[in-house]
Design a protein around this nucleic acid. Structure first.
Lengths: 202, 202
DNA sequence: CCAGCACTAGAACGAACGCTCTATCCAGAG
DNA sequence: CTCTGGATAGAGCGTTCGTTCTAGTGCTGG
């Protein structure tokens, strides 16, 4: 029946999910098509049926999937606190927890691929750019809701996301949550320095 | 005539420099040894003579080279201003200029390789970790010289470097210096919020 | 009942990968 | 001069890459 649609994913979705997870770990070149197919329980025939554009087209879909997935976590973290400064710090805690739980492998689903495909695979690079912009938009909305002016919120959101990216990477390399927790503390301080006191008088 | 020693590099140095530049652009997997050898004007025989450990050993040397090279630029930028907050902002300007001049390709010489080799090539990962720690040390020293307490300087330096890394990557993906300039503005504000006013009166 | 089509399946291909191997070059020591 | 060992040189190995190709399966409308 179609009732199991939400549980038993179709071949196409399994390919995208698997590709996203593999690319999150090791990037584009470290995610060979045959391993994606094997891990997804699919075959080469299926892959080229759904993605005639081959690996590059699959990668674009995988980046988009990682984009949405990360956005959900970001939105969830931001929603846990009303005050934007506290909310950003809460996000770093979430990221640190998820990262350590994956033995420091499940970092940003986009960064590795983005750096690897710069100037080589324009379609993939563009998808990565859209992901970053998407996340910046979520943070900016939270900052605006906290009382920051339109333009300052947008600018600050760029730096917030960039700092999260950098801290996540350093946390992976050093296998420590410290960089993320420090990012939380400092970003919180920075965001608070913009707000009118805080969100409101208590 | 050994006088040309400083200009005409030996084969080993040319291999390391070339590998570093290629890995800076596209990471480890996008830098095949045959291209490294060709670009460096060397041969496979020479490569395996100087680096019996093969590509991985060369990569470690290349990361170390990139580490030192980036450290020089960082130190130079930090030295242009006495006030740490202004100095950090000056660094972002330098980075943005160099990045745009290279058509957004010469980003951090370590990041791409670091993310690509996580959990795969421990030696390379460790070299990347040393590079980050090195740069954090340089920033921390500048912050201490500006009057920040020992521990706060060390913590803040971690975030400063992470934000620079994230902003550099986003600048590459979006082909815009804006992320770096925003990072400069925000980091400057953050650093200044710690200092006793500034470095001194005047 | 079967024709048509979306999908599955994996063998096979040429190119490129990292690396090994043998041969050669050449400066300096004896 | 010969001898020797560091350095150079690149053909070729086995493997794996992304992709193509043909064959087969199973559901669906007529």
């Amino acid at each position: 029946m179609a009732a199991t649609k939400t549980i038993e994913l179709g071949t196409r979705d399994r390919l995208v999910r698997t590709a996203s997870r593999l690319m999150q770990h090791g990037g584009y070149e470290n995610s060979p098509i045959k391993q994606i197919v094997r891990d997804a329980g699919a075959t080469l025939g299926s892959l080229y049926h759904f993605f005639p554009g081959g690996k590059q087209e699959l990668a674009v879909a995988a980046i988009h999937f990682g984009d949405e997935e990360f956005a959900e976590m970001l939105a969830a973290g931001l929603a846990t606190r009303e005050d934007p400064a506290e909310a950003v710090e809460a996000v770093t805690g979430l990221l640190a927890e998820a990262l350590e739980a994956s033995d420091w492998l499940d970092g940003c689903p986009v960064t590795a691929t983005a750096l690897e495909t710069l100037g080589r695979l324009p379609d993939v690079q563009e998808a990565c750019g859209r992901a970053f912009a998407h996340w910046q938009g979520l943070v900016a909305a939270k900052l605006r809701a906290g009382g920051l002016p339109e333009d300052e919120a947008a600018d600050l959101a760029v730096t917030v996301v960039n700092t999260l990216e950098g801290a996540e990477m350093t946390a992976q390399v050093s296998r420590s949550r410290t960089p993320l927790l420090l990012a939380g503390r400092h970003l919180s301080r920075l965001v608070a320095s913009y707000g009118p006191g805080t969100t409101g008088p208590r």
